[in-house]
């Protein structure tokens, strides 16, 4: 059920776009829904990030995996236990671009009946990194459909991605990458019993959605060709606020675009928000300098402090009377 229901939802979405466009609702699927989607995406994204920014972090809680900065003759692990902003920036960059913590992600395995073994799980790292980089490169390459004139680095990216020069239109390596990686990430959740047990519909739905987007894209490019010039005209119409619906754009394109719109709307309210969240995770973005710098809990109440001197000033006479020692005569 957890696995099938999200699939049914995605199939219904595909059918919705298919029959909608067949019924002539091209302006709805080609213009109205994409506009709504980008607005919800941006507002939702900002709303979420502001919400996190408002949450106080009572204490520095970086997850550390190495020697903290200590006495000069003890070697600090600067990457895994950064004590300066520069160290944090480097650590974050390695995390975001290379998924460093996933690289040494541990996999718990039960062996010989009741013994637990932890090992490194490089496959998840590989699947994750191939997926994310492919997705990013595809997204950047897509900007050729929106920009005019097209910046040189996009042409360069296309050249590099189609470096193999297989077939016409040229085959993109990232297309194979995204399909293989998403398939792996899906199978992982189905085949491994522990992960299957943990997986929710909210885990499967984005996988199905992204896989469907990639499949419709690949179909359009290599199998059921669409008129890319007309599609660029539609996309340019969107970004210049002169919406046009050129004739003769295949229904497959509208399905692709509708699924992308759904993804954009779903994005801010789902686990996919880790795109913004990774920058705001206190376990990663703080330096471990709890012992060097005083970190004041932001929700501490404003306490009126009364010093001993003030106390003594008030009660000096009484104290003297009963013979208590006082600081000032």
């Amino acid at each position: 059920m957890k696995i099938i229901n999200p699939l049914i939802i995605v199939l219904v979405l595909v059918a919705l776009a298919y029959f909608g466009v067949k019924a002539g609702l091209t302006a709805l699927f080609g213009v109205v829904i994409p506009y709504i989607a980008i607005v919800i995406f941006l507002l939702g994204f900002i709303y979420k990030v502001i919400g996190w920014a408002k949450s106080p972090v009572p204490f520095r809680i970086p997850t550390t995996c190495g020697q903290e900065k200590s006495l000069p003759w003890i070697k600090q692990n600067k990457l895994d236990n950064p004590s300066s902003t520069l160290g944090v920036v480097i650590r974050m960059a390695l995390e975001i671009f290379l998924f460093r913590s996933l690289f040494r992600n541990t996999k718990a395995e039960v062996y010989e009946g009741a013994k637990l073994k932890y090992g490194s799980n490089k496959w998840l790292w590989l699947g994750g990194i191939v997926f994310h980089w492919s997705f990013l490169i595809i997204l950047v390459r897509h900007s050729r459909l929106f920009l005019e004139p097209i910046p040189g680095f996009i042409t360069f990216l296309e050249k590099a991605d189609s470096f193999m020069q297989v077939g016409v239109p040229l085959f993109y390596m990232t297309d194979a990458g995204i399909l293989a990686a998403v398939t792996y990430l899906f199978l992982r959740r189905v085949v491994e019993p522990q992960i299957k047990y943990l997986s929710m519909p909210a885990d499967y739905f984005p996988l199905y959605l992204i896989l469907s987007i990639a499949i419709t894209g690949v179909l359009m490019r290599y199998f059921i060709r669409v008129d890319v010039v007309n599609i660029k005209a539609l996309a340019r119409g969107l970004v210049t606020f002169q919406p046009t619906i050129p004739d003769g754009i295949g229904v497959l394109f509208y399905i692709h675009l509708f699924l992308v719109s759904v993804l954009a709307i779903y994005f801010p309210f789902s686990k996919l928000m880790h795109l913004g969240g990774v920058f705001l995770s206190p376990t990663r973005n703080l330096a471990n300098n709890n012992r060097a710098v005083r970190h004041i809990n932001p929700w501490n109440p404003d306490i009126k402090i009364r010093t001993y001197e003030e106390y003594e000033d008030e009660f000096r006479e009484h104290m003297k009377k009963v013979g208590l020692p006082v600081d000032k005569e």
Partner: peptide, 12 residues
């Protein structure tokens, strides 16, 4: 793509 195309056109 939006603010970079201000004043741009479809240019088909």
């Amino acid at each position: 793509p939006i603010w970079g195309s201000l004043g741009g056109s479809v240019n088909m």
